[in-house]
Design a protein around this nucleic acid. Sequence first.
DNA 1: TCATTTTTTGTAGATTATTTACAATTGCAA
DNA 2: TTGCAATTGTAAATAATCTACAAAAAATGA
Lengths: 108, 108
Amino acid sequence: MSDNNKVQDENHSFDTEFLEKLIVGIGEVSKITNIPTRQLRYWEDKKIISSLTEEEGKNRRYNYKNIKKILLIKELLDEGYSLDGAVKKIEKRIQMIESSISKIINKQ
Amino acid sequence: MSDNNKVQDENHSFDTEFLEKLIVGIGEVSKITNIPTRQLRYWEDKKIISSLTEEEGKNRRYNYKNIKKILLIKELLDEGYSLDGAVKKIEKRIQMIESSISKIINKQ
DNA sequence: TCATTTTTTGTAGATTATTTACAATTGCAA
DNA sequence: TTGCAATTGTAAATAATCTACAAAAAATGA
């Protein structure tokens, strides 16, 4: 194995660690997804999405899975679904996303 | 191609977009890397690492490349390098990391 | 159309997180 | 031990986010 490939492999294993540990604030999620923070909070109020908030009043934190779901909701809204419609539609795809994340993280 | 594989592919192309857009605050970087915020600011003062701060006084922002470099520095310190030593050692590996990131983002 | 509901958006005042800039402390090598 | 490198502490100011109110806009259905 060449030196170069070795480093690529190190990067790969780091990336899974990276995804595992990744936790992001609402401002960054807003920039990543292009959804206003106000809207993200509203969706959470309506139980459409969730975050990792430790206690009431503390800042919201989002992991990779949270962000994935947000982007999926957004996609469905763009397709014309209502929020409730999106929630109903979403179950199957969420499961696929989760199994995909689990594959990434657990290197299965 | 099965439905399942299709979704996996969608996830993959999303991930590259995700990495491209990913921007993280100092608190999150601290949690991801396990390096105190105080230390991250010190390293930046000493020009060891950099961030995407828009203006003086605004909060620091870090992208994927920034975080990669921080983790690399940490690794070298653990191996016994001094900060200056790490900076000198790092050039070649930074280049490899960058080309690796560029491959991920540009799907080359 | 009109009324109702859903969804987005605005904002004030309080709180949390980060900033800079000072300095103190710790660790290490000559 | 002396000097430099590196980390850590902290106060006061600012930035970002919080909740809780409400208003505006968009979608739905009679």
